[in-house]
């Protein structure tokens, strides 16, 4: 006896019974199918006319990354590399540097990322970097990475990843916010 358990509840016994004469005619089934499509003629369409209308993103939409600054405007990232380790697409590269005196207003921790690059062509927007980050430094946002003609243009450096002081990116709705305060 086959004791293997089915993994879903969609198990169906396949029946190979002979078709009746009516079924062999096909015509009733065809007319039934055409009736179904005919009803669709009068349905409301689901089209979103894209450039004029845009669809609202889910709060947890995973688009272009942002490297956050804290309340005082210091970069959160400490170049621990956990995001790069977590990244399944190996899209993140970074070079760490030590904070020197006088830079306390720029970087939150003693070590910071001097160079931080995400290759948007490699990235699969899985959000694992966001999940891995212990410092609440990296988040995915609802911004779309624009298309481009050149491959190099898709390697985003700190200039495009770190948020501007006067143009903060709101991430309060994201799943992994508030992690640091819990610790």
């Amino acid at each position: 006896m086959n004791t293997m358990q089915s993994l879903t509840d969609r198990k169906k016994v396949v029946s190979k019974k002979e078709m009746t004469f009516m079924e062999k005619l096909y015509l009733p089934a065809i007319i039934g199918g055409m009736w179904i499509t005919f009803k669709h003629l009068f349905r409301k369409n689901n089209t979103v006319k894209y450039p004029e209308e845009t669809r609202e993103f889910a709060p947890v939409y995973r688009g272009q990354h942002v490297l956050k600054r804290d309340e005082e405007g210091r970069e959160n990232c400490t170049a621990c590399g956990l995001c790069a380790v977590a990244c399944p697409a190996e899209a993140i590269t970074m070079v760490a540097a030590e904070r020197v005196k006088g830079e306390e207003n720029l970087y939150r921790e003693e070590k910071y990322a001097e160079k931080y690059e995400i290759n948007m062509l490699r990235c699969i927007f899985c959000g694992l970097c966001e999940e891995a980050c212990p410092k609440e430094a990296i988040f995915l946002t609802d911004r779309i990475v624009p298309s481009n003609f050149e491959r190099d243009e898709f390697v985003y450096g700190k200039d495009r990843l770190v948020e501007q002081l006067n143009d903060r990116i709101d991430i309060t709705k994201r799943q992994h916010t508030g992690k640091r305060s819990k610790i």
């Binding site: 499509t37 669709h40 349905r43 369409n45 689901n46 089209t47 006319k49």
Partner: peptide, 11 residues
């Protein structure tokens, strides 16, 4: 085709 698939079609 679009109407049958609840779309608008070329517009």
């Amino acid at each position: 085709a679009a109407w049958f698939q609840d779309r608008i079609g070329p517009d």
